[in-house]
Simulated assay, not measured.
Amino acid sequence: MSVIYILLSISIIVAVIFFIAFIYAVKNGQYDDSYTPSVRMLFDDELVKEQPKKTIIKPKKTN
């Protein structure tokens, strides 16, 4: 039973460390993106151009 308490305490410590790292990254602007939202509307509905089919040109026979 004591193993459960040890594992639970270790998992809580790891979770707190990851939460602190996340808060630190957010405060330092790691997730700030001011460019993409302004141009996203230009590229969302972009039409996909179909590639023309390649035709095989057979060489003419010369006599």
Score class of each variant (00 low, 15 high):
42 L>Q: 09
2 S>N: 05
52 P>D: 02
21 A>D: 06
53 K>H: 09
50 E>Y: 03
58 K>T: 11
26 V>Q: 12
24 Y>R: 13
61 K>G: 04
30 Q>I: 08
2 S>A: 11
10 I>S: 02
48 V>P: 01
23 I>K: 09
38 S>H: 11
59 P>W: 00
28 N>F: 03
55 T>N: 07
32 D>P: 00
35 Y>G: 04
59 P>A: 05
44 D>T: 10
13 I>S: 09
16 V>M: 10
16 V>Q: 06
51 Q>K: 15
50 E>R: 08
23 I>Y: 08
61 K>M: 06
54 K>M: 11
48 V>D: 12
41 M>N: 15
27 K>P: 00
22 F>P: 00
46 E>W: 10
15 A>Y: 08
48 V>G: 04
22 F>T: 07
34 S>D: 15
7 L>N: 03
54 K>F: 12
15 A>V: 03
44 D>G: 01
15 A>W: 12
61 K>D: 10
6 I>C: 01
38 S>Q: 13
56 I>R: 06
40 R>E: 12
1 M>F: 10
36 T>K: 03
22 F>E: 07
56 I>W: 09
58 K>H: 07
42 L>G: 10
14 V>M: 05
57 I>L: 13
39 V>I: 15
25 A>E: 13
12 I>M: 07
14 V>K: 03
58 K>L: 12
25 A>N: 14
30 Q>M: 15
46 E>D: 10
11 S>D: 01
35 Y>A: 12
12 I>T: 06
44 D>L: 08
59 P>D: 03
46 E>Y: 07
28 N>L: 06
55 T>H: 06
61 K>V: 08
43 F>S: 09
55 T>Q: 15
25 A>F: 09
23 I>C: 14
34 S>A: 11
42 L>H: 09
62 T>I: 15
26 V>N: 08
53 K>P: 03
27 K>R: 15
35 Y>K: 12
22 F>K: 05
29 G>K: 01
55 T>V: 15
15 A>R: 04
55 T>F: 08
7 L>C: 03
47 L>N: 13
10 I>P: 00
4 I>K: 04
11 S>A: 11
62 T>W: 05
50 E>L: 10
15 A>T: 05
13 I>H: 02
3 V>Y: 02
4 I>W: 03
40 R>N: 11
45 D>R: 10
30 Q>K: 15
63 N>K: 11
51 Q>H: 08
18 F>R: 06
11 S>K: 04
8 L>C: 00
25 A>Y: 07
53 K>N: 03
5 Y>T: 04
6 I>W: 02
45 D>S: 12
53 K>Q: 14
2 S>E: 10
23 I>G: 06
9 S>H: 02
27 K>V: 07
3 V>L: 09
19 F>M: 09
36 T>G: 03
62 T>E: 12
38 S>D: 14
7 L>V: 03
36 T>V: 14
48 V>H: 07
39 V>A: 02
63 N>T: 08
12 I>Q: 02
20 I>L: 15
27 K>G: 04
41 M>Y: 15
38 S>Y: 13
39 V>M: 05
48 V>C: 02
39 V>F: 10
16 V>I: 15
15 A>C: 08
49 K>T: 07
57 I>R: 07
41 M>G: 14
38 S>F: 14
60 K>I: 09
62 T>M: 08
41 M>Q: 14
40 R>C: 01
12 I>F: 05
1 M>V: 05
25 A>V: 01
